[in-house]
Design a protein around this nucleic acid. Sequence first.
DNA 1: GCTAAGATATTGTTCAACAATTCTCAATAG
DNA 2: CTATTGAGAATTGTTGAACAATATCTTAGC
Lengths: 217, 217
Amino acid sequence: MTLSTAQRVADVLRERIEGGGLPPGTRLSEEALGRDLGISRNTLREAFRLLIHESLVVHRLNRGVFVRVVDPADVTDIYRVRAALECAGVRAAAGAGQPLREAVTAAVDGAERAAAAGDWQEVGSADLRFHRALAALSGSPRIDAAMDRLMAELRLAFHAMPSAHRFHEPFLERNRALATLLEDGEYGRAESELTTYLDDALELILGALQEREGENA
Amino acid sequence: MTLSTAQRVADVLRERIEGGGLPPGTRLSEEALGRDLGISRNTLREAFRLLIHESLVVHRLNRGVFVRVVDPADVTDIYRVRAALECAGVRAAAGAGQPLREAVTAAVDGAERAAAAGDWQEVGSADLRFHRALAALSGSPRIDAAMDRLMAELRLAFHAMPSAHRFHEPFLERNRALATLLEDGEYGRAESELTTYLDDALELILGALQEREGENA
DNA sequence: GCTAAGATATTGTTCAACAATTCTCAATAG
DNA sequence: CTATTGAGAATTGTTGAACAATATCTTAGC
């Protein structure tokens, strides 16, 4: 057995959460879930710890674990941190190695290919890879890890987005523009464009969240 | 009891580690520690997970957990992230609220008072507060949390520093200069000064680590 | 001195029982 | 009718034990 039971259970729960089967705010009862999955409470708790580390769920003492709720304040904060890390990457681009710079271009290429094929889910993945590649230009393992956690949190918020197509389409062109600016060494302009880019994306998401909020009235 | 057993155990271990009672590289035996602290292995492992999340200890599969060893590559990476977060704070200074800006000045004041009193340990604490206040200008809870983790990691490396006095003295003046630049709205100059400041500090620490490395030959 | 097989010790995983805490909900006082 | 309180139910926290998997140490043989 190369994968522990707890890991497999965590995989199942991760799928259910990201698939929408377990909506944000849901309480994950140890007894009910354990009986459902045929495992002991202790093993389930071990699985919870893995998901807590991914910040997919949160743990409240003596109250249990709940599927993470990402509210507008969280999304705003996530974009603040992204701006800091991705801008730092852009400013480090001049001194970054060739492989790191190529990863940026490769992500944009992938997004355009996926868009041409109409695979908008893959466009979304490529977009995440693009932004991760920007931050990775710093060459910092800690920044890479931080970006991964931020992206995992964002995925939860994306559940509220009505259409991946409509959300990602306008950014395809801007991704390409950013990549070109970097290739041309226009780091200052790339940074200011990236800043407004992130502000625009944040506003789109916040708008979608607010609309969805209105529905529950 | 408002704190879980695991949390209290984690607190005890954190103190022992930061106090030097458990030097970097020490293996934390589950059975021995559990017997020593009067808790079960399961609870101790829960405490370990909290410390792992703070990156005070590391876990190696089937080998147990060890007090974190911070090597030169780690220190370099930590300073890369600090540069990204603190510079982001400086650039957000214009839009930051009055309390956040006052915290920066207050930290510099505190450091100077402590230096005048000859309390160099307190100078070190005030210096950390100063840099945390810089990053906090972004107004981001996630950035605050990240800075706390980075500082905790750095404290482990500081154990290798021979003299807090010699290390901190030259930066007292530069802290004041930075705070003044911020008060005067000279954000561009503040950022470039901060960048060279962090580079200098990194070099000092790396030098000290290398010296200490030489001693163990 | 070095290698390999076996013995020992430690961590990984799972379980079931008990303790401590929170939650539910009806009864009561205002 | 609302707010409070308290007993009981439901849920999580903690423990100790057992067994499996892995690493480390010991020893025999070359």
